[in-house]
Amino acid sequence: MKAIVSVFARDRKGITAYITAILAENGINILDISQTLMQEFFTMIMLVDLADCPLDFGALQKLLKERGAERGLSVHIQRQDLFDAMHKV
């Protein structure tokens, strides 16, 4: 299953490193990544593949949310299909 991970936070060093390490620990492959600064807000969007992730979706969602919160990051994961459905004809 492919999913979109989105990370929002006030910009500072090490956010990408922190999040991608968590993904790697859980067998998640990053297929594409995009990051921008909107005013002072860091926004990172990743397309990831969950094929080798041992956790079920709910557990992964909870883990990302909790680990993100430890560093003041808002981290969400959603299945990719929603974005495809809404924006592609």
Partner: peptide, 13 residues
């Protein structure tokens, strides 16, 4: 190819 359109994703969010 994995096309990530972050504008669309941010719009949805």
């Amino acid at each position: 190819s994995y096309l990530l359109n972050s504008d669309e994703i941010i719009e949805t969010i």
